[in-house]
């Protein structure tokens, strides 16, 4: 609500996209929403952990001390080494590994979700808006990707290119974009039948304008929901790739990778699988809280 005498009411903003005020507006809205703020704090902490890993991790994450393997959390060794979250099967400090693993994990999951989201959004909107044969071609392509065994696709691509970080991102994006494309196409089909789209056409708006101003903003909501859901999924998909030996190469740890390693020791050393799982869970929680807020923030009908 506007206070009486609020200057903004007397001199109203016509366009919403006045960038500077929009950013400040978003910030104020975030501060008002306690849950979203909590999520943002989580995300900021996780990102800080990734950026400042060398300063946060107490030990070298790849230092193996085989005779100190699979020790439970809060163990103090005679050497003076204190492992807060225990050690893994090779005696490496679990906390340091999880801290370092956040780097690759975050890069892979966020870029994969963003890249696939971008591809899916573009193809979904094009298919839904243009319809006819374009729609048919795009959707059959989606069917092909959905029908194709993902592991086989991943194995064959990596067999050709060799494993690397970017290949992992591409492989995951190939798997995930179809989800966006399907849902966004449906939302586009619904949006383009709305009278305000017809009105824009009748006013002489170019097709590009119709799509960007009237269709796109009304289909981003499902895309954001998928994105928040898939950040967690992608972390697990990455671990599946690592398990197959086509994940991120070398000694670079990832949360999914540590989780996968710990699975074998779940009955004797639960912490190896538990703590990376916890890290994934907390991150996904943060993403979901922030994602919910973004969705609501973009929808003027829900704004408090």
């Amino acid at each position: 609500m506007h206070e009486p005498g609020d200057a903004s009411v007397i001199a109203p903003d016509l366009m919403r996209d006045e960038r500077t005020s929009a950013l400040a507006d978003a910030w104020r809205s975030l501060l008002r929403n306690k849950l979203a703020l909590f999520g943002a704090v989580i995300l900021a902490a996780v990102v800080a952990m990734a950026v400042f890993s060398p300063w946060i991790a107490p030990y070298d994450p790849s230092l193996q001390i085989p005779w100190e393997g699979r020790r439970q959390p809060l163990t103090l060794f005679d050497s003076g080494r204190f492992v807060l979250l225990g050690t893994d099967q090779l005696g490496r400090d679990l906390l340091s590994r999880i801290v370092y693993a956040s780097r690759v994990t975050l890069v892979v999951s966020f870029t994969a979700v963003a890249v696939s989201g971008l591809i899916g959004l573009i193809i979904g909107v094009i298919a839904g808006y243009l319809g006819s044969w374009v729609d048919a071609v795009c959707m059959r392509l989606v069917d092909i990707f959905l029908a194709f065994p993902f592991e086989l696709l991943a194995l064959s691509i990596v067999a050709v290119t060799g494993p690397s970080l970017s290949v992992v991102v591409v492989v995951i994006a190939l798997r995930v974009w179809v989800v966006y494309a399907r849902v966004v196409r449906g939302a586009t089909l619904a949006a383009k039948e709305k009278d305000f789209v017809q009105a824009a056409v009748a006013l002489g708006a170019s097709e590009l304008r119709v799509v960007l101003v009237h269709v796109l903003p009304n289909v981003v909501t499902p895309a954001i929901v998928i994105a928040t859901l898939y950040v967690g999924r992608v972390i697990l998909i990455e671990s599946a790739l690592s398990f197959l030996g086509v994940g991120v190469p070398g000694s670079t740890p990832t949360w999914g990778g540590i989780l996968g390693d710990g699975r074998a020791y779940i009955d004797t050393a639960w912490w190896i699988a538990f703590f990376p799982g916890l890290a994934i869970m907390i991150t996904v929680l943060g993403v979901n809280l922030v994602g919910d807020w973004v969705r609501d923030y973009l929808d003027p009908r829900i704004q408090a």
Partner: peptide, 21 residues
């Protein structure tokens, strides 16, 4: 209820034809 884009302000909606042309 269907003829106005829910994501735009009234000002932007009414001004759109002027912007387009």
């Amino acid at each position: 209820y269907s003829s106005l884009n829910p994501r735009l302000t009234i000002g932007s909606i009414v001004a759109e034809p002027l912007v387009i042309h």
